[in-house]
């Protein structure tokens, strides 16, 4: 079971990288691709935590979640393009 979950975590990580590349290719904006990658890495971290309950896995999962939160805050603050103000919307 542990090996299956570890393999699943690796697959999800690979899927996350490919999905982030797809998101960047379509949107041409790292602010769209980075959250996608971090969501998949979070899913992979949770799968790895289910496979192996150790302090290392716990720290990795916590680190990924913290990076995800910080990246989300950073993307919310930084404008999409240079000179674009934060109040502009895509509606």
């Amino acid at each position: 079971m542990t090996q299956v979950l570890t393999a699943a975590a690796l697959l999800v990580t690979a899927a996350g990288v490919l999905s982030a590349i797809a998101a960047y290719t379509v949107s041409r904006w790292i602010g769209q691709a980075l959250p996608v990658l971090l969501d998949f890495l979070t899913a992979a971290g949770l799968l790895r935590l289910a496979a192996d309950v150790s302090w290392g896995s716990i720290l990795v999962a916590a680190a990924v979640i913290a990076v995800r939160k910080v990246a989300a805050l950073g993307i919310a603050v930084v404008p999409r393009r240079p000179g674009e103000d934060l109040s502009s919307t895509e509606l």
């Binding site: 999800v12 490919l18 769209q32 998949f40 899913a43 799968l47």
Partner: peptide, 28 residues
């Protein structure tokens, strides 16, 4: 719980791949 997370990841990957195939304009 692990199965639900894995199925969700696979579903999301399929949707992103479909968005890539359809091309630009699908970012919304």
């Amino acid at each position: 719980g692990a199965l639900i997370i894995f199925v969700g990841a696979v579903w999301a990957f399929a949707r992103f791949a479909a968005a890539l195939v359809r091309g630009r304009g699908q970012a919304t």
